[in-house]
């Protein structure tokens, strides 16, 4: 089944096309990579899918419904969750509160029962607490439940961010450079984690990554973006040998020197 279908997505900033006629097709439970040189517009695509930016043109059909231009919180409710390139946790809050916030969209008790503390409130809080702990346990963070998020080591912050995203119960998880700042050992562990999440949570994953070993290692199909345009798509093997892709990357390398 098509989970996400993007047709002719277009977005420009100040007349400059950041994403130009972008197309993508993702089936449920697929693991897809989006790669490209710096400034190719990858994060912009993520921002368009999750509603942070409104597209100028094009369709984003998720689960059979066009979500282009919808507010981010509504898109989240439809089942899209994401992490950020530069981790964006609720820094001053505890680890468990970070995850609890993700459950708020399905809060079971009313504002009135909150203020006068009706039984519904206590029951609802108990449920949220249990569910949040479950997610922390999965990501081995349950022993740190009351620690302040910003005090966690880098790797655990990344894990907490993924846990928080999963707690919104998405059918599609979007990861923006999940391996950034990780050493090879941590990256390998992350690869396993990503594969396992897809299996265990029954969802599709779309990820941006610069670490080619990770992308080639876990992704089933890869899309390549350069200057806002799709220049290639296919299996990892095909992408590895694609002339245009090599050029795009080499071009960047030459430009850097």
């Amino acid at each position: 089944m098509n989970l996400l279908e993007i047709n002719n997505l277009y977005k420009s900033f100040g007349g400059l096309g950041a994403v130009i006629n972008f197309n993508i097709l993702i089936q449920s439970q697929e693991l897809i990579g989006l790669i490209g040189p710096n400034g190719a517009g990858k994060t912009t695509v993520f921002n368009l899918i999750t509603g942070v930016y409104k597209p100028d043109k094009g369709q984003i059909i998720f689960n059979g419904k066009n979500i282009a231009g919808m507010a981010p919180y509504n898109i989240c409710k439809k089942g899209v969750a994401r992490t950020f390139q530069n981790i964006r946790l609720f820094k001053d809050l505890s680890v468990i509160d970070n995850v609890k916030i993700a459950f708020h969209k399905d809060v079971s008790y009313s504002l009135a029962s909150t203020i006068i503390r009706l039984p519904a409130f206590f029951q609802g809080e108990k449920n949220i607490e249990e569910k949040a702990l479950e997610y922390l346990r999965i990501f081995k963070l349950d022993t740190k439940r009351d620690e302040i998020a910003s005090n966690l080591p880098y790797g655990e912050q990344r894990r907490l961010e993924i846990a928080r995203a999963l707690a919104t119960q998405p059918t599609m998880l979007i990861l923006d450079e999940p391996a950034a700042g990780m050493n090879p050992q941590e990256t390998r562990e992350l690869m396993e984690l990503i594969k396992w999440i897809r299996q265990d949570f029954n969802l599709s994953i779309l990820l941006i990554e610069h670490d080619m070993s990770l992308v080639m290692g876990v992704c089933e199909r890869i899309y390549v973006l350069d200057y806002g345009q799709l220049i290639a798509e296919g299996l990892p093997e095909e992408i590895r040998n694609n002339k245009k892709v090599i050029e795009a990357y080499l071009g960047e390398e030459v430009g850097k020197c």
Binding site: T50, Y73, A81, L93, D97, I101, T168
Partner: peptide
């Protein structure tokens, strides 16, 4: 009472990071 509830956490998450809060499904 308001602050020690899911509603309160939603409110605080806005202070912490409005964009992340919105993307976690909070209006």
């Amino acid at each position: 009472n308001l602050m020690n509830s899911s509603y309160g956490r939603a409110i605080i998450s806005i202070r912490e990071d409005e964009v992340a809060s919105e993307l976690m499904g909070i209006n």
